[in-house]
Design a protein around this nucleic acid. Sequence first.
DNA 1: CAGTGGTCTAGACCACAAC
DNA 2: TTGTGGTCTAGACCACTGC
Lengths: 246, 246
Amino acid sequence: MRPHTHITLDRNSPVPLYFQVAEQLEQAIAAGTLGAGERIGNEVALAADLGLSRPTMRQAIQVLVDKGLLVRKRGVGTQVVAGRVHRPLGLTSLYDDLTKAGQQPRTVVLKLDVVHPDDQVRAELRLPEDARVWYLERLRSVGPDPLAHMVNYLPIDVVDLSSVDLGETGLYEAMRRAGVVMRVGRQRISARRAEAAEARMLGESEGAPLLTMERTTYDDAGRAVEFGTHAYRPDRYAFESTLVDR
Amino acid sequence: MRPHTHITLDRNSPVPLYFQVAEQLEQAIAAGTLGAGERIGNEVALAADLGLSRPTMRQAIQVLVDKGLLVRKRGVGTQVVAGRVHRPLGLTSLYDDLTKAGQQPRTVVLKLDVVHPDDQVRAELRLPEDARVWYLERLRSVGPDPLAHMVNYLPIDVVDLSSVDLGETGLYEAMRRAGVVMRVGRQRISARRAEAAEARMLGESEGAPLLTMERTTYDDAGRAVEFGTHAYRPDRYAFESTLVDR
DNA sequence: CAGTGGTCTAGACCACAAC
DNA sequence: TTGTGGTCTAGACCACTGC
């Protein structure tokens, strides 16, 4: 155990108390104030120190356990996980990823249309026979080289894509601005050979390996709001994620 | 809202109450008793019906929210997410995945040794200069065709691999039997061309696309217990996962 | 307005690990 | 035996949604 690292609470803030604690603990870990393998806690004492109830303190710790930064062990305590911190793979888009990493992505819209979806897309989005969807095809680059070729399908009533500058705004950002609250994504990552046209667009040779991702995203009402199939140049992109067992 | 689906509790069971509830709700969703878009809840009434406190009921629902099966919306209620259920990508090994899917994987151990790790491996495992590690190289097949080529490094004090039949037992299973409790995994998925030797082993041609995964796994004390770099035939394997925003 | 989930309190008893 | 996290209770007030 060790003296806890100067956590201050603002009980008038709209930010929940458990979140304030989690944020400051995370900063302490990132800054090295709490080093790998070091123990925090215990929960009861920490809660008392901060004038919180134990459930609230537990909730704060749980946030960091879920992020893979802390591990709990009954009868022992709560410790900082070894190893450098990865940004977790969340419900973000490639555009979000790149801008957060300080990159400046450029996007070319190759096609934007309203179409009748094929059976696979209609099944993924759980749409009726006669429904129509947005068809969006884009090419994204960072620096001089292309990075990803992206095809997305959205139910037409989710957002009006014709009124959005998709060269300047990411698709997820546009959806959020339209009031869509995305909550769950189900994705499948694999690889395959580049086809001729695709290879040309991405600046690769035909048959080169491409990293592929298919994702269906659902909003806070459980409705499918987007289905996409993307292809990435594997020398320029990888999927990183943290898995936690509870 | 709707009548809740016959949940029975056993207060003498060692299984936590919130977990009993979550399990039975999940079964109801899988069976279609609770259909896509349908509302459950509310929390207060459900808790009262089952004779539970509201926090316990909330904890049960939270389990399924984290799995991506339910979404909550303040002022509205809790609904079942549309779409079929995916098995989530957890802290499992390829061996676990395949056996759960009813497959019978065969594993050939190509090499098992104790070596001095190179700088990358030593850094991933956070080991001192003079530490030694297990080097394990395997080829896994399902049916007549090879599926994955796997290289793993483990600190020598984690488990004695020389006493395990790794042709019959998965690595993760062997670690669990040795008392290792794995809690956090950090992984990176990408793709590349197959090299000559690798292509021969996997029954592919040189230059064929391979799906790659690197993973470092940590135990319940925050210690790095395993680092692996794997290559999969992408026509036979893909990574599926569910992402949840909270 | 009524109904919903989001947060928070102040306790309690238990299971497990380490000594 | 002592200390830790794991579970559970019975309330409370608030923020947001939809009518």
